[in-house]
């Protein structure tokens, strides 16, 4: 398909805004490639607009499963975990999670 014929579903600016929200970054080169694949996914998702035979009025919210107030957790303290456990997957400092700001 010629480039001009391809429906532009997402602009570069829009793509970059989404990347910012997602906390991801892409190089110019990656961007081109990624946007193409991304548009394909959006097209795929646009499949929800295909018509379904039968009664469309039956479209409804999912019945949310409910929990009675009385079945919620009681307000009773459970011992917390030791600080060493909490920090066991990271280099901590004086009991804190710590990130050093590296000035380039």
């Amino acid at each position: 398909m010629a480039e001009s014929q391809r429906e532009q579903k997402i602009s570069k600016e829009q793509f970059r805004a989404l990347a910012r929200l997602s906390r991801l970054s892409f190089s110019e080169e990656e961007e081109e490639q990624f946007i193409a694949g991304f548009e394909e996914m959006i097209t795929f998702c646009d499949g929800i607009n295909s018509e379904i035979e039968g009664d469309a009025s039956s479209i409804r919210e999912v019945d949310a499963r409910e929990i009675a107030l009385g079945d919620l957790r009681a307000d009773e303290v459970v011992p917390s975990l030791p600080n060493e456990k909490i920090l066991s997957n990271v280099h901590g400092e004086r009991g804190y999670f710590a990130v050093k700001r590296v000035v380039k």
Binding site: V77, V78, S80, P82, N83, L87, R94, Y96
Partner: peptide, 21 residues
Amino acid sequence: ATKIFCGCSTKFGASPNTHCC
């Protein structure tokens, strides 16, 4: 007495990351 989604204490002023799970 406890946090909104876990049983850790809400007490103010503890050493860092000791009321955690």
